[in-house]
Amino acid sequence: MDTSLFSQALSQEPLLQVQNMSRFYGERIGCRNVSFQLWPGEILGIVGESGSGKSTLLRCLAALDQPSEGEIQLADGGQWLDVPALPEPKRRALMRRAWGIVHQNPRDGLRMGVSAGGNIGERLMDAGERNYGEIRRVARDWLARVEIDPDRIDDLPRHFSGGMQQRLQIARVLVSEPRLVFMDEPTGGLDVSVQAKLLDLLRALVRDMGIAAVIVTHDLAVARLLTDRLMVMKDGVVIEQGLTDQVLDDPQHAYTQLLTSAVLV
């Protein structure tokens, strides 16, 4: 038994802290009083049916939207950054450096008029890489890692299948080695067999790189395969959270019981 592994893993500080966060749209509640912590290397799932507030929550976390109340803090170089309060240029710099967003529709995350290699290289250039040969080398390497033939480096994403586009988007997001990744239904809209491949790939990449991730999905099977912890949302509120297998196998809340009994997971 290697005890050093324990102390290393348990001494870590959380990467993200969310305290009583709410987002209102006028009278309407997007999400209300959400609190949680996320640690490095942890994968958190957010499940609930459409309209439950899970995408609103994700958008606020990823700084694509501003919360109405509450705090979102990100650990950065030994201090806590109040993400919503950061001035716009600083937030943009942080987004490029520290986190990535995988959109449900790859068209929202890719530049469709730019080659596959360009889509990956752009993020590297944002991160300060200037050597053209090195950018191409890394882009080819990442195409291979997401199982796209590296010889298609100069092809446009619009000539790729849906599954390939999604894998390209993942390469574009992960190439800059973010500490935190947000994913909105990353396997939505794909065939079941393609989904399985993508899930396997995502899990391996996230585990190997020690990335923390927040994944929104309505698919409980996806949540079971990919996530460590789960939050269940209904009407904008987190009604249950805990270990993924505990929430799915021994749900406490009436709504979660309904959700888990309606499908095979």
Binding site: F6, E42, L243, D245, Q246, D249, Q252
Partner: peptide, 29 residues
Amino acid sequence: NYKCTRGEILVRHDEQWIDIATAQARTIL
């Protein structure tokens, strides 16, 4: 995997006793 309704489930982990019934999700992981 199931949530304990009452009582304690102590497990010796890293030379400490930890109660699975009340431990945080990440501790159980």
